[in-house]
Design a protein around this nucleic acid. Sequence first.
RNA 1: GGAGAAAUGGCAGAGUGGUCGAAUGCGGCAGUCUUGAAAACUGUUGAGGGUCACACCUCCGGGGGUUCGAAUCCCUCUUUCUCCGCCA
Length: 423
Amino acid sequence: MLEVKNIKQHLAAYQEAFQKRNFDASKVLPEVLQLDEQRRNMQTELDQILAESNQLSKEIGMLFKNGEQQKANILKEKTAGIKLKTKQISTEMDAVNKTLVELLFSIPNVPHSSVPAGNSEDDNETIFGEGEIPKLDKKALPHWELAQKYDLIDFELGNKITGAGFPVYKGKGARLQRALITYFLDKNTQAGYTEYQVPHLVNAASGFGTGQLPDKEGQMYHVTEDDLYLIPTAEVPVTNIFRDDLLTEDQLPIKCTGYTPCFRREAGSYGAHVRGLNRLHQFDKVEIVSLVKPEDSYQVLDDMVAHVKEILRELKLPYRILRLCGGDLGFTSALTYDFEIFSTAQERWLEISSVSNFETFQANRLKIRYKTKDKKKHLVHTLNGSALALPRVLAGILENYQTPEGIKIPEVLVPYTGFDIIN
RNA sequence: GGAGAAAUGGCAGAGUGGUCGAAUGCGGCAGUCUUGAAAACUGUUGAGGGUCACACCUCCGGGGGUUCGAAUCCCUCUUUCUCCGCCA
């Protein structure tokens, strides 16, 4: 949710920036300002009436104390009209407020100045790449065939137990996944992120806080009986740890990491490009979340990108980094870098991390603020990223590390897996 | 799941219809004293809105109600604690 005072201050600049994400803000922003003005005026009017009412009540109290019942009763009659009026104004104000908030909820974040304009993923900007793409044998297999060949993942079994998109990991496949999770968490904690284990179901308030609700309701599994949602990412419970918090300046930056399964309905879209581990309803992910002072957030974004880079370097996976264009940018994000690894057997890039700066967009909804030494209060900037998403990393390792003898295990993982080849 | 009790400022804890946004203690901050520290003493110390600044408004778990007036009374929801039942 954007801050009204910022809209007021940067109206023209915002209008222009929104064009990059093809969002027509020409009507909605002035409307927000107009509603805010209206709400403000009503608030002032209401306050004045309440002040009058409070004053009268006090006088009545004094009169009763002094035994001047008659005078008190005269004043009482005066209050009747005031009561009516307060009710009237406050219902009107609630209505205006509701419209205002709904409108604000419908406005996406303002793209950062470095965000390229564009409509789709084709317009994303590749800003970095490294790692050697291995030259594989002609007989190289995609990961779903490797998974079957070495009995690592059973997709059919998942179908039986639950349905499509819920694979069962098995033997060395399960072990490799667990090794990756532990390795990621170790890397993250070494980099100063505090590890959390959080609930996998969240309430609606948490969903609103991080922006999954109300617009992306259909993407989450909803447990209607208890009105809870299965988390689509650890970002939701982890960021909500700090909802409504007033932090002190010296508590920042706050860096958290957490491993959770993630649940996504992702209705539609079946076919070859979502085969195997490419797209699932349940998958594992290790997430990193940062809460920082506004002036630090872009440096921290770079730090988080560097951190993910280091992990991919250690795993020796060929990857590239994209700066998302306006059209591909998430609703809540101001700037997002996507990491993709090259799936050699599928000959395509797979997204395995997305690192974003939300600036105050989430913090404004979540009311996460901090107090400076001179007691000024500001919203924090929130950032998060995957470090990393498991299934596609697993897929990338299986495919890129395959040899005629079997699948080799990246060196850094061997201490975690306890074996160095799958054959 | 059943029975009972409770929810107040950073914490502890009073207040049970009328200057209560809230006593008191601890903690925090500032000062006095001290070479420095501790102790002692003095002052100060919740949040949001609003204003150039005041004024003023709102907030005593959430929501609703009674009343001229609610932290205080009523309804409801949530959470916590104790006891019982069940249980990884």
